[in-house]
Design a protein around this nucleic acid. Sequence first.
DNA 1: TATTGGATCGCC
DNA 2: GCGATCCAATAG
Length: 196
Amino acid sequence: MPLPRRFYNRDTLTVAERLLGKLLVYHSPEGELRGKIVETEAYVGEEDPACHAARGPTPRNAIMYGPPGHAYVYFTYGMYYMLNVITEKEGFPAAVLIRALEPVKGIPILQRNRGVTDFLKLTSGPGKLCQAFRIDSSLNGIDLCGSRLFVEEGGEKRPKVVWTPRIGISAGLDKLWRCYIAGNRFVSKTNTVQLK
DNA sequence: TATTGGATCGCC
DNA sequence: GCGATCCAATAG
């Protein structure tokens, strides 16, 4: 069951944290794929210099200004796609980047799409998980309250969460807007702060 | 129309 | 540490 739209229609940092431990589900042409979300980042409004909407609306970031609960997929570095979920009320550009997953279902498909078999390398990064799930710009704008691509409850209690600066950006490094499940092996980079 | 650099990854 | 690879955004 997809999470309801109200899950996304609130403060972006809250959504970023509450997505941890939940399941990303994609009914792909190759079969059903599932992964537990273990790492996310928040991008919040035109005042956030690292947000794609920092300089106002453009054709690329248009979906960020739309209603919450939709996917924002964009292409970068000439070869990778990034998957975000749109948050907050329509008209306010904000999103959560899905940075890493723990593979749950469709492992052979994920391995084939990635060209590697090592579990730890399948979906442990934002570019990797899109490659593994074959998520590309054809899914940009898709409604996450639909049945093709969505997030659902993971059935676990709230995980212990660590907050750090976001990865791969040059502005907004003062904000601790990246979060991940403490100790999870599928987080994209070696954890600098590890809770016991 | 030209130029620049990126919410990355994997190999050197 | 660096190259791959291409497109959006900005400048001219």
